[in-house]
């Protein structure tokens, strides 16, 4: 009995120490080399690769048996390789629309969030509509805006800005109000001005909320830009326009190649946001680890 007990405890100790050593070694070597090493491990890349192979097989099988449903993967690849300049220039146009629209939404919604967090009356007036509009699919406004503003870039910027506006507004205004009450007490006994409280306390407190919104809104901005382009094809460039044209010409592979570029853009933006977030919110993540 005791022999077994001691054996078990020895095993536990062994497991404990080995765990400790691996965790400490991994935390010590967080450089790029370690990152590459961990990516190279089969347990990291194998599951996703297996799924990709299955997916590609299914795709190929569908494309072979029903060519009007899906183009062959090779045709998409060829289209990308042969016409990459076409895709890149259109992607650049779409990217500009989404980023400028997003920037407009960000500035406007941040200012409005400050207003409604500072003035309760403004909050009571605006918040109900913000909540309703946040769940309304505002992309449906695109056709109306095209009618109103024509085929220029205005309707695209407006749609993009509109769909990015409310998620940022709601998150940031929530963040501005979710301040540690004890810290707020300290500020009040110092007679901090409203601006000082906003600048030193409320805005930093809202940053985690802001980044949560940004992670949602960066991909949304691409959706906004593409939907607007789909509704105003022909006049300007952009991947939405490219898709719309290809659709009327039955060029399935061009549509899918455009989608590939859109996906890459979305992933790229998300990657950038996440990297910036990790930089800016290092204090926040470490707090989460602690609690």
């Amino acid at each position: 009995m005791t022999a077994i007990d001691s054996a078990v405890s020895r095993m536990k100790n062994a497991v404990g120490t080995s765990k400790k050593s691996t965790s400490s070694s991994s935390s010590r070597s967080t450089g790029p080399v370690a990152a590459v090493k961990s990516v190279l491990r089969p347990s990291f890349w194998l599951p996703a690769t297996v799924l990709l192979v299955i997916f590609a097989t299914l795709w190929r099988w569908t494309a072979d048996s029903k060519p009007y449903l899906l183009p062959p993967l090779s045709a998409i690849g060829e289209s990308i390789v042969n016409d990459w300049q076409y895709y890149v220039s259109n992607a650049w146009v779409t990217l500009q629309v989404s980023l400028i629209g997003l920037a407009i939404a960000f500035v406007a919604s941040f200012l409005l969030a400050i207003l409604i967090s500072e003035i309760p009356m403004a909050r009571r007036a605006i918040m109900p509509y913000a909540v309703v509009l946040n769940v309304t699919p505002l992309v449906a406004l695109a056709p109306a805006l095209v009618v109103a503003f024509g085929f220029g870039s205005e309707p695209k910027l407006i749609v993009t800005a509109l769909i990015c506006f409310f998620p940022i507004l709601i998150s940031v205004s929530t963040g501005l109000l979710s301040v540690d009450p004890a810290a707020l007490h300290v500020f009040r006994t110092l007679k901090a001005s409203r601006f000082e409280t906003l600048w030193h306390l409320r805005i930093p407190s809202s940053l985690p909320y802001m980044f949560t919104a940004l992670r949602v809104v960066f991909p949304l901005s691409i959706i906004g830009a593409v939907v607007a382009e789909l509704n105003a094809p022909g006049a300007a460039e952009g991947l939405g326009t490219a898709i719309s044209l290809a659709s009327s010409n039955n060029q399935l592979s061009v549509i899918y190649a455009s989608i590939v570029f859109l996906a890459l853009m979305g992933a790229g933006l998300l990657f950038i946001v996440t990297a910036v977030e990790r930089r800016v919110l290092h204090w926040h993540e470490s707090r989460q680890v602690q609690s």
């Binding site: 004890a182 810290a183 110092l190 901090a192 000082e196 030193h200 306390l201 930093p204 204090w283 926040h284």
Partner: peptide, 26 residues
């Protein structure tokens, strides 16, 4: 000077920045 029940430090500031913050306010 108020010392609340919880330390109420600002998590994004270093200890030094936290303790010198009152001098930057008001």
């Amino acid at each position: 000077g108020l010392v609340p029940q919880v330390p109420a430090l600002l998590p994004w500031l270093s200890v030094l920045d936290n303790v010198t913050l009152p001098s930057k306010i008001n």
